[in-house]
């Protein structure tokens, strides 16, 4: 993957396949402490202990069988490379929380990419699932929740193609604002 946003798009698909009805995506970019934390939490079917071990290790599993995928090993590799880590907590029938940590000062750290596009596309493409997206930049937080957005939209579907572009614009405008605020904070 060429950026963090595409990894997030990919990891969210795991939660969707796991039949989650609520998916929380949290991004905490803390440049003061050289840390980017990405957390994706779902209430899907969860994984057994055995499965967690299997998916985290790219060498024993993903390369040998076609049944085990590449999404998690690729993300782990990109996180580890920067001096970060990947961790998975999961419980059957409760859900899964995946955390990826990156060190942004490392030259191997991927750029954030088009996160507003990823969130709006995912929300539009999965109208029956709820998403809560928290994005913090140096302590300044923006929260986007489809639960609130659906209330505002009333009987217009969140998947309506005419809505998607405005969702993206809304997220983008807010991200730009917390970005600007965070520059003020730094100096």
């Amino acid at each position: 993957m060429k950026d963090i946003a595409l990894h997030i798009l990919d990891i969210i698909q795991n939660s969707i396949v796991a039949k989650a009805t609520l998916i929380e995506i949290s991004i905490d970019e803390d440049f003061v402490n050289d840390s980017i934390l990405v957390t994706i939490k779902d209430n899907g079917c969860g994984m057994s202990k055995k499965m967690i071990e299997k998916v985290s290790d790219p060498y024993t599993t993903s390369r040998t069988t076609r049944k085990v995928g590449l999404g998690i090993p690729l993300l782990k590799q990109n996180a580890d490379r920067t001096g970060g880590y990947l961790s998975i907590k999961s419980e059957l029938e409760i859900g899964t929380t995946l955390i990826a940590s990156f060190k942004p000062s490392n030259i191997d750290c991927l750029p954030m990419g088009d996160i507003a596009g990823v969130i709006s596309l995912t929300v539009s493409g999965n109208p029956s699932i709820d998403f809560i997206y928290n994005h913090k930049i140096n302590g300044n937080l923006y929260t986007f929740s489809t639960i609130e957005v659906k209330k505002v939209l009333g009987d217009v579907s969140i998947g309506d193609p005419s809505i998607s572009v405005y969702l993206k614009e809304m997220i983008q405008t807010n991200l730009e604002e917390i970005q600007i605020d965070s520059i003020g904070y730094k100096t």
């Binding site: 595409l6 990919d10 698909q13 999404g71 088009d114 596309l121 572009v165």
Partner: peptide
């Protein structure tokens, strides 16, 4: 939108189709 789809450009295509 499996990993292989995303890695090869599925996001761009979906955005293009929507617009």
């Amino acid at each position: 939108m499996a990993t292989c789809g995303i890695a090869s450009g599925a996001k761009t295509v979906m955005e293009f189709m929507m617009e």
